[in-house]
């Protein structure tokens, strides 16, 4: 047990230089962007004077080093700065948008795991059967259909033609009020309030975008489960277990699946981090107020504080995610913690 906590402590310590590096690089990268925020924010009818006024009010007339020191000073006080384009503190903005993205991504991942993992296991235990073919078909379709296309098709069929899906208007239709924020996850918050009407409304809004994303993330998870299961099932210890006369369920789930889970969890972590940044298109189609569209809009107008805040937030999230995956390893694989330094 102590070994595990040392390993966890080491992992956290290792992430400190990563975060510091991200702070420096995100600062430099945003300054290296070609656009000039002063020009952007001076508005439609700008004169050279008004552009200079805006530059001074944004603090961009100061030397780069001084800007960086001011930024670091603010960061130490937990202040990510003020986004010029939305006019709100970046921290506040991220706090309201990150849960929206996380809720969508997590729902999609749970959905896709619920389909992909059993499908992968079945495909591996019956290679060449119809389940295997179905798995192959779903995987190919999932990878080859871009998310914005799937999203629009789903809206077209379920909202426009059939009229069973609610209006694709973001997290909640306008007839509901947002639940009081506790976690920022509408499903959790409305459940906490006992407001099942809003809960249902949230769920309805969530279904289509979640399916869109799930279709996209299904492929790597199902492929990985199938491959890992196949490898595990042909391993020596399975042959031994079978020879020892263990039951089929015990062999399949107790030994083969548990060993196959390691690469699946790794893939899951990668898919999660990838999707969190990449679901911009789904967010646009479903008017989802997520973090991806926020970052893209900030980039387009060279909104430095917002871009830096986003990069930093993602870096922290990845550090946490990696930690969580490592912890999951230690649960799955007893060897963890004794070897890891």
């Amino acid at each position: 047990m102590a070994g595990r906590w040392t390993a966890v402590g080491l992992r956290i310590a290792q992430s400190v230089p990563v975060v510091l590096g991200v702070v420096v690089i995100s600062f430099l990268l945003t300054r290296a962007l070609p656009g000039d925020p002063a020009v952007q924010f001076a508005g439609a009818a700008a004169t050279p004077e008004s552009i200079e006024q805006v530059r001074a009010s944004l603090g961009l007339d100061k030397p780069l080093l001084q800007q960086f020191l001011i930024y670091c000073g603010d960061l130490l006080q937990g202040d990510l700065g003020q986004s010029v384009s939305t006019g709100r503190p970046v921290a506040e903005e991220l706090a309201s948008r990150l849960p929206a993205s996380l809720e969508l991504t997590l729902t999609a991942l749970i959905l896709s795991c619920a389909i992909a993992i059993p499908l992968g296991v079945l495909a591996a235990t019956r290679p060449g059967s119809w389940v295997d073919q179905l798995c192959r078909l779903l995987v190919t379709a999932g990878v080859s259909l871009p998310t914005f296309f799937t999203g629009i098709v789903l809206i077209y069929v379920f909202y426009y033609l059939l009229g069973i899906a609610p209006s694709p208007l973001g997290r909640l239709d306008f007839i509901y009020l947002e639940p009081d924020p506790v976690t920022g996850f509408f499903l959790v918050d409305s459940a906490l309030m006992g407001d099942w009407e809003t809960w249902l409304g949230t769920l309805k809004q969530l279904i289509l975008p979640a399916i869109t994303l799930a279709l996209f993330t299904l492929a790597p998870i199902a492929r990985m489960t199938r491959a890992a299961m196949l490898a595990a099932l042909s391993a020596d210890y399975i042959r031994t277990a079978r020879a020892a006369g263990l039951g089929r369920g015990k062999v399949l789930y107790g030994y083969a699946f548990r060993n196959a889970l390691l690469p699946v969890v790794t893939t899951l972590g990668m898919v999660f981090s990838f999707v969190l940044g990449a679901n911009v298109l789904v967010e646009k189609v479903f008017a989802w107020p997520g973090i991806g569209s926020y970052a893209v809009e900030a980039l387009v107008v060279s909104d430095y504080a917002a871009v830096q805040g986003f990069v930093l937030c993602m870096a922290l999230l990845f550090v946490l995610l990696n930690l969580a995956i490592d912890l999951a390893y230690s649960v799955i694989d007893p060897r963890f913690g004794t070897e890891a330094k």
């Binding site: 694709p168 208007l169 306008f174 189609v285 008017a287």
Partner: peptide, 21 residues
């Protein structure tokens, strides 16, 4: 009057055609 922000033109179109907005 409720003004909703919907970035995707395709979604905007579906909404107004259906009469939900």
């Amino acid at each position: 009057i409720i003004l909703r922000e919907v970035p995707s033109a395709a979604t905007q179109r579906a909404l107004v055609e259906r009469g939900d907005v």
